[in-house]
Nucleic acid binder design. Sequence first.
RNA 1: GCCGACGUAGCUCAAAGGUAGAGCAGCUGAUUCGUAAUCAGCAGGUUGUAGGUUCAAAUCCUAUCGUCGGCUCCA
Length: 575
Amino acid sequence: MQKENSQDLSILRHSASHILAQAVKRLFSKAKLGIGPPIKDGFYYDFDIDGELLSQNLPRIEEEMRKIVKEDFPFKKEKISKSEAERIFKEREEPYKLELLKEIEDDMVTLYSQGDFVDLCRGPHLQSTGKVKFFTLLSVAGAYWKGKEGNPMLSRIYGTAFFTQEDLQQHLKMLEEAKKRDHRRIGKDMDLFTISPQSGAGLAIYYPRGAMLRDILENFEKKEHLKRGYQLVWTPHISRAHLWEKSGHLDFYRENMYLFSTDKEEYVIKPMNCPGHILIYKSKIRSYRDLPLRFFELGTVYRREESGVLHGLLRLRGFTQDDAHIFCAPSQVVEEVRGVIRFVLFMMNTFKLGYRVTLSTRPAKYIGSLASWDRAIEALKDALKEENLNFEIALGEGAFYGPKIDIQMEDALGRLWQGPTIQVDFNLPERFDLTYVAPNGEKKRVVMIHRVVLGTIERFLAVLIEHLGGNFPLWLSPIQVRILTVTEKEASYAQDIYQEMISEEVRAELDTKNEMLGYKVREAELDRIPYMVILGKEEAKRKVLTVRERKGNNLKNITLGSFLQMLKDKVKHRE
RNA sequence: GCCGACGUAGCUCAAAGGUAGAGCAGCUGAUUCGUAAUCAGCAGGUUGUAGGUUCAAAUCCUAUCGUCGGCUCCA
């Protein structure tokens, strides 16, 4: 039933996109048609036209669409020969449709028409334009023809459509809600971080609360890595360009790298941590008995990203990977990858995040031999299968040095962001001649696995903020408790409680402002503080606390000792 | 990088060529209050930046930086 519904919905939306195209052609006869498919949450149509005109005229276009709906044209399907279709679109001066026709291998094609509007389309559609009742246009954006940089930039109009007014309303409401969860909004509200034009686009600055949050995450990461046999390492932020020449990055990754020269030499600000970890591996002769070696670093890297792609903490130019490189024998690869997969799943479960797994294969631009690529892909597949994970294959989406498993996480608008990734690399060990001594005394080639389990601290924080709407569980909350006094008379008792708490390593704040309690409660709620401790005449007299939970429940007559114990238990179990 | 929109006080937003304004936050004072906004006063801005048009620019033009929505790219 559900599935049928979503199929019907995409037919509806496809029809809506044709109505949109007809409306635009009516208003702007010079507009050339691109394509107009239904998508996950609606539909779009691409036009080659002055984009400014469209954004100003969105209301007019929508009005025209409603007229077309009223006119109730039937959607007519017609099967004709390709040459006949070519004649029609030539006459109608639709160069993009002609280009699409050329790529169709069949001799026959289908056209759909409504009124005087004709489109090359596989269909299906609803019976008539009158069936499309509840829709709205949302935005205008640029989009390259066929999604290829270098192709002409078309103007894309996005919209959405539903079968009922209620569904439409609900969807629009959901978009509003998502906006409220936007990590940039919450980051500002909760005083966590900023990206200041003064320091530069794509570079985040953490305020005390944001820095606290990072620190909690980072400490958690370090502990979990140590538990799994990783060793902490640290490598410098800049290094000689020479190193990056050897790794191949200067050839394959140059446009994303920040380079600078000192008087004598060129240097690179690291965009990745692997070359540094390789130097650590190479610092001595390694035995098969040492393997696998797992080097972990919260490595801050900088990449020159195109200005248009920057997006809060989700897409930055400077970010910190929870990066590790595992050096192992070829026979250990599957087991090591399995271990990383389990680690990733542990993380996703800990934070209760949804995810999607893909296996990315060899891209057009790559280094290393075909045979080693095939071997690496097999190893990743085996590990995924043995962990019983569902995954999709993304052809040609691998890194230039090896195939990878990507785990994507969802943000508040349902957009997917790459987080954890696991990449097998047979190539860098070759380039740097990384070996170990086998039992028979022979030198053997080591295999390298690059992997991150959260991805980056920044992006992960962003996804987490949106996932939780800023309501961090106690163990993650930068501020765990705020102490509120009812009147100024309780200031000294509150001060004592506060001192006790911070000495017990509770992240507490004291609010003795001369304001009414309602005001302070409201502020603490807006700051999403998990626990408020309310101290008035009663509490001071009886030396107890009243605790208000974030949701509004009250716990009365609690002693400081039992409250501290409760906090400790919850932190321990990450509730 | 490309297409489009936008940039006004710490924040949210007014002011459509003619003296930049409000709410919240901040500060001072009053109030001493029991679970999502107590009252009053004060202060706060070379309208992102740099040029230009004009008697006069937040407003019009150009460039530039940045932000937002996409495309492309990616952790």
